[in-house]
Write a protein that binds this DNA or RNA. Structure first.
Length: 319
DNA sequence: GTAATTTGACCCAG
DNA sequence: CTGGGTCAAATTAC
């Protein structure tokens, strides 16, 4: 197993996780003694922000280590709690060319495919988990050969801020609790300050999922399913993925790794997936402040103090 | 009253 | 001609 990513990125992620650990310990201390709810909320906010940064660092590390493109795996198996990017009904012949460049009056010409993920329903079965953005449904179509209709959404801020991001959501045929979500374009809107971080990195959970999926190990060969040995995707599709990532805010913000290439950060995919899962959970936990410290850490990190003596410590996947 | 959703029609690529 | 994506009027929700 050798998901190889950038070494400096690894150091940054470790540093961020250590800070998260410190904040969690503070939170634990505060929760075990009378304290201000606002203080705890502030700590949670810092934890979320740091986690978000870690996600961004890890994402870019993997992107650079894999040739500059984020890989939205087409063959990764499903994972608990996380979405998986699986062969989808969306990926039929027509969807291999989702970005037609036309001058069609009614068709988007600027939208680019950002990601294609499979997500589980949030709580109920009405729709996939909130991805941090506000969407407005503008259409629904029955798709040939699919059991469920496809919903079309655009960013709520399209009219006010000209944000061109769109997404398509379709319940999977085989599991009604799963949704295939295809994102087009980048968010150019500027939501309120409360969600500024999310705006800066609009699909943190999506990217995490993609990151995790991209490092899924083929258990038969014990070889990571990198783009090189994964079943070949349509060339156009790969090209589009790379284009969308290279132009994304994620790839250009201040935490960038300056084009660093392969490093010596070797990842055990199982551990990585745990970390990714934990990070994704932290950023999507419904009410961090409502949990007590033990529940919070258990929920987010499957943390057992008796075993680990720490929340994160030095992640075991940094070998 | 405003915003969001629904839904049939329209448009275009293949 | 067909299927997918979008529009926009009507409807519904807040």
């Amino acid at each position: 197993m050798e998901g190889v990513v950038d070494g400096s990125g690894a150091q940054l992620v470790v540093a961020e996780l250590v800070r998260v650990q410190g904040l969690l310990r503070q939170l634990e201390a505060h929760l075990s003694a009378p304290c201000s709810v606002e203080l705890c909320r502030g700590l949670v906010a810092q934890i979320v922000a740091l986690t978000d940064r870690s996600i961004g660092i890890a994402t870019r590390s993997f992107s650079s280590a894999s040739g500059g493109g984020a890989h939205f795996a087409d063959t990764a198996p499903p994972m608990p709690a996380l979405t998986s990017c699986t062969p989808s009904p969306l990926s039929d012949g027509s969807d291999h060319q989702p970005f037609r460049t036309t001058n069609a009056k009614k068709r988007k010409t600027t939208a680019r495919w950002t990601s294609q993920v499979r997500v589980s329903a949030a709580g109920g079965a009405e729709g996939p988990a909130d991805d941090g953005h506000s969407w407005r449904k503008y259409g629904q179509k029955d798709i040939l050969g699919a059991k469920h209709p496809r919903g079309y959404y655009r960013c709520t801020h399209r009219n006010t801020q000209g944000c061109t991001a769109t997404k398509q959501v379709q319940r999977t045929d085989d599991d009604a609790s799963l949704f295939d979500v295809v994102y087009h374009g980048e968010h150019t809107c500027r939501p309120g300050a409360a969600s500024a971080a999310a705006a800066k990195r609009p699909h943190a959970q999506t990217l995490l999922q993609s990151l995790s999926a991209s490092l899924t190990v083929n258990t038969d060969t014990n070889t990571p399913l990198t783009p090189e040995n994964r079943a070949p995707a349509p060339p156009l599709q790969q090209q589009q993925q790379q284009q969308s990532v290279s132009a994304s805010p994620v790839a250009s913000d201040s935490y960038g790794l300056g084009g660093a290439g392969y490093g010596d950060w070797r990842c055990c995919d199982g551990d990585l997936q745990e970390v990714v899962s934990a990070l994704a959970t932290v950023t999507s936990a419904p009410d961090h402040a409502a949990m007590d410290a033990a529940d919070f850490m258990s929920y987010c990190f499957d943390f057992d103090p008796a075993v680990y003596g720490g929340i994160v410590g030095t992640p075991s996947f940094f070998l």
